[in-house]
């Protein structure tokens, strides 16, 4: 299978990156001056007995690599340790929260891709006045951090117009969507602008190619020329940026989930940092890093699938 010739090295690279990242996340506890047991126990002054229990549970008296190995194998069997704050297994807490964050990132990602590429395409294709207007709007939106977007949206749509809720999780499809819509927009705003800017410049670069002129000279319908010869060719740089944006979306869930009071992984991370619940912090950070690294690999794969020359070069 020629597909594997490209895929296998990439997957090995992905696994290595994740291993090193996990080593960093786990080892970071030991970089802090003081007793790791105190940190893992929630940073409070604990009795010697309690510290001994933590030491025992995390195997802190073993060598570092033994401990790391213990933790890592625990990850694979679904044992992420015990939360100091909630007195529950970390895996159970994460399980109850992961859906909200995944839905939030997917919804925001959808907005970023559809509206970002759409606005970029319109700016590139529709004459100078439209281009100037969109470029102006995009420049401003790119400077709006998600927490500022969040408070503006809350004030407009929840406080003034009372159309959508200002916080909470919601039940059922409509309830969930109505509770996720404002957070997703707040999260998406500045990234949408970044994608729009890149899409515009990538499409402007492609639309003056000679093969596009030739396609037009053949009387092909405008829509076909735009889709097949401009947008398609502009996809590799756009998909690279979308993958980078995904990192921002994942990290940004911490902000909007806190601003809107959503119970997802982002707000869990923020609470756990505040209450120094380190096992949760480690698990959530590692999950977010893993999601981001996987997304980046997928973007590279997409760029290869689109470009036949690169595909041949990669042996696919």
């Amino acid at each position: 299978m020629p597909v594997l010739r490209w895929t296998i090295p990439r997957i090995i690279q992905l696994v290595l990156t994740l291993l090193v990242a996990s080593l960093v996340v786990y080892g970071s506890v030991f970089l802090v001056p003081g007793d790791p047991a105190t940190l893992l126990g929630g940073g409070k002054a604990l009795s010697p007995e309690a510290l001994a229990v933590i030491r025992e549970r995390y195997g802190l008296d073993d060598g570092f690599l033994t401990q790391y190995w213990h933790w890592l194998t625990g990850l694979f069997s679904g044992d992420l340790g015990q939360s100091a704050q909630y007195r529950q297994p970390v895996s159970a807490i994460i399980e109850s929260r992961v859906a909200t964050t995944v839905e939030l990132v997917l919804l925001a990602g959808l907005l970023v891709v559809v509206l970002g590429i759409g606005a970029g395409a319109i700016a590139a294709l529709r004459g100078k006045r439209v281009d100037d207007a969109i470029t102006f709007g995009v420049t401003i939106l790119a400077a709006v951090p998600s927490f500022v977007a969040a408070i503006v949206l809350i004030f407009l749509f929840s406080v003034q117009l009372e159309w959508l809720p200002s916080g909470g999780d919601g039940e059922g499809f409509v309830g969930t969507l109505s509770h996720l819509l404002l957070p997703a927009i707040a999260l998406a705003v500045s990234f949408m602008a970044v994608v729009a800017r890149i899409s515009r410049s990538a499409m402007r670069r492609e639309m003056v190619r000679e093969h596009v002129e030739l396609a037009r000279s053949r009387g092909l319908p405008n829509g076909l020329v735009v889709r097949r010869h401009i947008l398609w060719n502009a996809l590799p740089p756009i998909s690279t940026v979308v993958a980078m944006v995904l990192a921002g979306l994942i990290g940004g869930t911490t902000i909007v989930e806190s601003a809107f009071g959503l119970h997802g992984l982002g707000s869990l991370l923020v609470n756990s940092v505040q209450s120094k619940d380190f096992p949760i912090v480690q698990a959530v950070v590692l999950m977010m890093v893993a999601a981001f690294v996987v997304a980046n690999t997928l973007a590279d794969l997409l760029a290869l699938i689109i470009n036949p020359k690169a595909r041949k070069g990669a042996g696919l």
Partner: peptide, 24 residues
């Protein structure tokens, strides 16, 4: 104009490598 081009004319440009979309 589109219909006119489709029915009547064909262009052959200078650089064949630039004339054909490399992605398809």
């Amino acid at each position: 104009l589109q219909r006119f081009r489709a029915e009547n004319v064909a262009l052959i440009a200078q650089d064949p490598r630039a004339s054909v979309n490399p992605m398809h």
